[in-house]
Design a protein around this nucleic acid. Structure first.
Length: 628
RNA sequence: GCCACUGUAGCUCAGGGGUAGAGCAAUUCACUCGUAAUGAAUAGGUCGUCGGUUCAAUUCCGACCAGUGGCUCCA
């Protein structure tokens, strides 16, 4: 989520490239600060940059700003705008600026008893050779590189959106500030349109639709971030799995099944335990060992130490499927003639995500990856990656998801978290780059986005509120084959180390379906619709006729129901529309007479009538072709 | 994990120191109906959990659990 990251210090050049809208938003942030300053003169301000769709300003303040305060703050902002103050840029010397800050004059309308301490800190961050500028609007002076619009009167279309918490400079070791978010546009019309879009977005939130359409449920008693797929959601998931399954066959994959747990030693070998213990569910200790330890009066802390050191044996809920697949690969001898070996599994994994991170289906603690591991020779890497990318493209194309970006995740040269030697990393990164360039889509190389074991290509989409989610992923791994000592016999009759590729076109079923719900706003294409056709008899008199049609559709493999409720057809249609049923079949006297069905589509409305068999053929074809 | 807010019927929400209310859904009855809501009746809740204050707590306070918005994190 790059837009949520603390902005890097921008160079003056970069700042001057700010778009008009960004300028306006940044200026509106100053108007906000001015207003807050007037209402709470002891407020201490940190940074107030423009962000996507708006701006924020970080403020340290005894008073807890709540949405109830927004009206008051906005009223004060309105006054500042009405005063139509000029934004005035003033270049000052470092000492002069420091003196102002010491007197509390920065990000304030007057000198105060306490220094503007965040501004002092920011001042110290400014490189020696850069000039220091103060922006003034009225009596509000702020340390700021700008740029700004001409006058506060230009900021006339804004709205405060929310107040949240943020660590100063994005560092959890720093104090937490109150971050007031606002949105701002050129004029009231554009602001109105933006607010309308947000309202629409709220309507397609997968958490709301998931409840309304009975797709999934997360229950307190089961646990945070553990998704219960209800029958309707399960249909969608199963259809997606079938869809992928067909392509697995086509691409030469072998499907496997593996258990949900594995011994701690397995993960010691893979390097995930105890290295990543914080992001896993706690280990499961063996009963005998637990009993012996408790007889000895061993504390929980000691137990966990002994689990970590290996003195006590235990199991772990699998945080990934790779070690299991590796063990399947290792259970046979392999010649170069066997490669690539492609093992696929819809494998459920468990990860201990921080509680504050969980939400809906997109960030959970137990999820099923449409996972596969490819074991191949170094020469095969590029082709295999291209095959994986092809699959991701088929998946996203079939679903009409073209609004994604491709990210090639490379290692961060300054970090030490990566495993394996750098020559292998270089080769892997190069292979990914080459494969990505055949994709026909723009991609961005992002240092620091690699997994600890290898570089990767991710497909990232945005949800309705603009948050980015990683879906499909293809990752090269030179590390696990090393750790597990994987081998194959080459043409030279000596043993070689295979390369591993991890890949998941959906990423996780949970996240993917969550994103899919929002993508379609609940109106799934017919092949994914939990209920494809609903028959609506006009009155009880036509229930028998409806039953005949129902049976025919069922036999053709269509997911169909019949609404026999004692209601007018208008009410039944309304209900079916709310349930986003693709096709409604209306059956009354006319249809009985002509032996036809009347068709209503959820978007296209009344489509006239035709014989049942003709309709059945049409639906079956629509499902088979997975048309959108 | 951190900060803030929220938790009342299956769902959406109102209320508030004296053990609760609406709409929709559900059930029953009447109506037998033509492309987004027929009418009436009935039933439904330990007011998230556990403690504290109080004659009295769903309401006030605290802790915990869960959700939401951010931050940090994300093999």
């Amino acid at each position: 989520m790059p837009e949520s990251k603390e902005p890097q210090r921008k160079t003056l050049d970069e700042r001057n490239q700010m778009s008009d809208l960004e300028r306006l938003r940044h200026s509106t942030a100053h108007v906000l600060a001015t207003a807050i300053c007037r209402l709470w003169p002891d407020a201490q301000f940190a940074a107030g940059p423009p962000v996507e769709n708006g701006f924020y300003y970080d403020v340290d303040l005894e008073h807890r700003i709540s949405p109830d305060d927004f009206e008051k703050i906005e009223a004060e902002m309105k006054k500042v705008v009405k005063e139509n103050q000029t934004f005035e840029r003033m270049i000052v010397g470092r000492d002069e600026a420091m003196e102002m800050a010491q007197k509390g004059r920065l990000a304030a309308e007057m000198e105060r008893g306490t220094p503007s301490h965040f501004k002092i800190d920011l001042l110290n961050d400014i490189p020696e050779d850069e000039e220091i500028s103060i922006f003034k609007n009225g009596e509000f002076w702020d340390l700021c590189a700008g740029p700004h619009v001409g006058r506060t009167g230009n900021c006339k279309a804004y709205k405060l959106m929310s107040v949240a918490s943020a660590f100063y400079k994005g560092d959890a070791a720093n104090p937490q500030l109150q971050r007031v978010y606002g949105t701002a546009f050129k004029n009231k019309t554009e602001l109105g349109e933006h607010l309308e879009r947000l309202e629409e977005a709220k309507q397609r939130d997968h958490r709301k639709l998931g409840k309304e359409l009975d797709l999934f449920h997360i229950d307190e008693a089961v646990g945070q971030g553990l998704v219960l797929w209800k029958p309707n959601g399960a249909v969608i998931r199963q259809e997606l799995q079938n869809f992928i399954g067909e392509h697995l066959d086509r691409q030469g994959y072998s499907q496997v099944f593996t258990p949900h747990i594995g011994k701690l030693d397995l993960y010691r070998t893979s390097g995930h335990f105890p290295y990543y213990a914080d992001s896993q569910f706690p280990p499961i200790a063996e009963r005998e060992a637990m009993k012996a330890l408790s007889d000895e009066g061993c504390s929980c802390g000691e137990l966990s130490n002994k689990l970590e050191s290996g003195e006590v044996a235990g199991f772990m809920l699998k945080p990934m499927n790779c070690p299991h697949h590796i063990k399947i690969f290792q259970s046979n001898h392999h010649s170069y003639r066997d490669l690539p070996v492609r093992l696929a599994e819809f494998g459920t994994v468990y990860r201990w995500e921080q509680s504050g991170e969980l939400g809906g289906m997109t960030r959970v603690r137990g999820f099923t990856q449409d996972d596969a591991h490819i074991f191949c020779t170094e020469e095969q890497v590029k082709d295999e990656i291209m095959g994986c990318l092809e699959l991701v493209k088929i998946v996203l194309g079939t679903l009409g998801m073209d609004d994604y970006r491709v990210r090639v995740g490379l290692r961060d040269p300054d970090s030490t978290k990566y495993v394996g030697d750098s020559e292998k990393w270089d080769r892997a990164e190069q292979a990914l780059r080459e494969a990505a360039s055949t994709l026909g889509t723009d991609f961005a190389e992002e240092p620091g986005e690699a997994a600890f074991y290898g570089p990767k290509i991710d497909f990232v989409v945005k949800d309705v509120i603009g948050r980015e989610w990683q879906l499909g992923t293809v990752q090269v791994d030179y590390n696990l084959p090393e750790r597990f000592g994987l081998e194959y016999v080459g043409a030279d009759n000596s043993s070689h180390r295979p390369v591993m590729i991890h890949r998941a076109p959906f990423g996780s079923m949970e996240r993917f379906v969550g994103v899919l719900i929002e993508h379609f706003a609940g109106k799934f294409p017919i092949w994914l619709s939990p209920e494809q056709v609903r028959i609506l008899p006009i009155s009880e008199k036509f229930v028998d006729d409806a039953d005949v049609v129902y049976e025919k559709l069922r036999e053709a493999g269509i997911r169909v129901t019949c609404d026999k409720a004692d209601e007018k057809v208008g009410a039944k249609i309304r209900l079916a529309q709310l349930d986003r049923i693709p096709y409604m079949l209306i059956i009354g006297a006319k249809e009985q007479e002509s032996n036809q069905v009347s068709i209503r589509h959820r978007d296209r409305g009344d489509e006239g009538s035709m014989p049942v068999d003709e309709f059945t053929n049409r639906i079956v074809e629509e499902v088979r072709s997975r048309s959108l």
